[in-house]
Design a protein around this nucleic acid. Structure first.
Lengths: 243, 243
DNA sequence: GAATTTAATATGTACAAACATAGTGATTTA
DNA sequence: TAAATCACTATGTTTGTACATATTAAATTC
């Protein structure tokens, strides 16, 4: 394992250390309750201060990936939670897995000036155009979900891509961007006129609304995604185990 | 607000600071996007170092209760109720942490013959009565969630318990059952007449519907829970990392 | 008057140093 | 032998300091 950080890089050292620790966690070498190197040694090896190393460790402890014990050491937590694989399937993969035939009703690509919320999430100015992708998808009988995606300029997407391929394939294969982390917010709301028209339903009818924030390997924002699901067309499942 | 920490206490200063910050978060004074005092001033007021204060702040930022912005300041996150899959706080604990006052509108205990779905989940016959717990809860202004829970006989619950205490406390403290694993399904649906009446809204209005399957230490089913949330009163957040 | 520069302010990153405390195991003591 | 003590190790807490960077607003320049 490469055990050195780039002190010249603009990426903060504690972020780099965190990434390295994540790789260590994945390493079978540290799997079965074996202890990681102690903080002082590890900090010395990485040529960073113990404080900075602890910043990285703290985050992973918060996430439940590491367990620290005073006077003893730090070890990798027992693996848990399996909702990940389900969560990380793309829409089309997910439907395919359930044997649901998919029809693409609309696909619209445009370059727009981002709203403040989005610019804020992407950490860019509102005067820089970004790629917007709208998709209406569903069963052959009719649409049941309307997606809107916004992409950070750093993705390099031109808008000319073949969006019939899974999006995360395009990003990974053609632009070497791996969606690493996603945060989602699920809520219910009533359909407004626009959404109701798209989904061929009545304004005011219940919609499962899903916001999705996607980050890359370095925890940099790459996609902001909104999904409007017709009620009863979609169930979101989560499995969690006490830490 | 008492704005002093006990430097003699064995409780670490950053924990005390965290508690104080939680109280500040609950304070209407800081509610509507107003900024908290800046870190340096606040640290001085509390007579602790900025580093120690930041230790407390970090935790609350991680929990999503505070939002920090470089060059601007720190503010309380919008009080949209949210649930972290990571986090095993009960409903009331969670609301308390966010400083949202909770009112219990109804609490109804009964013994019923289970429907087939439930008997199936519990792996019991439908001719054995089980405990059903219905609760209507919300803010002082009005209810926003209606819960229905069914418990496996193995929990030992008699129905005489003080259900104002957190449920998971009762199970753990009095019956030595630890809820270890939960599977959830989230979807949207329209309120039927019964639910609409409970939640004081219109039939047909959007509802976030959450089914929850809870298992104990030995992966045996112990609770079947249904939650009907008024739209826009509840956001379900999930964070997942590629496995 | 509009555009640019500058200064003030607040959070972000990073280091070094010191002492506290919990766990472990070896050593000493009753 | 069993119990108490002690030293060692690793994490936990806390401070002080310094500089970096994003944001905003005021001052300056064109």
């Amino acid at each position: 394992m490469k055990i050195a950080l780039n002190h010249k890089s603009p990426i903060p050292l504690h972020i780099q250390a965190e990434e390295l620790l994540r790789r260590m966690i994945a390493d079978p070498q540290f799997q079965n309750g074996k202890l990681l190197p102690n903080e002082i040694d590890l900090a010395n090896q990485l040529a960073i201060s113990r404080t900075t190393l602890r910043q990285a460790l703290n985050k992973l402890v918060y996430e439940g990936l590491l367990i620290r014990k005073k006077g003893v050491g730090t070890k990798v937590a027992d693996a848990m939670i399996s909702s990940k694989s389900v969560n990380w399937l793309s829409f089309s993969q997910e439907m395919k897995a359930r044997g649901i035939p998919i029809k693409n009703f609309e696909l619209h690509v445009s370059w727009i000036y981002p709203e403040e919320v989005i610019a804020n999430f992407f950490n860019i100015k509102t005067d820089q155009k970004i790629l917007k992708l709208e998709r209406l998808r569903g069963r052959p009988e009719g649409p049941f979900v309307y997606f809107v995606s916004y992409f950070h300029p750093r993705t390099g997407l031109t808008g000319e891509e073949d969006f019939k391929r899974p999006l995360y394939d395009i990003l990974q294969a053609d632009y070497n961007i791996i969606s690493e982390l996603s945060k989602e917010e699920i809520s219910a709301k009533a359909a407004d006129k626009f959404i109701a028209a798209k989904l061929e339903t009545e304004p005011g009818s219940p919609i499962l609304f899903r916001k999705r924030f996607v980050y890359d390997q370095a925890d940099r924002p790459i996609e902001y995604n909104l999904g409007y699901y017709k009620a009863d067309s979609f169930v979101y499942t989560v499995e969690s185990r006490r830490g």
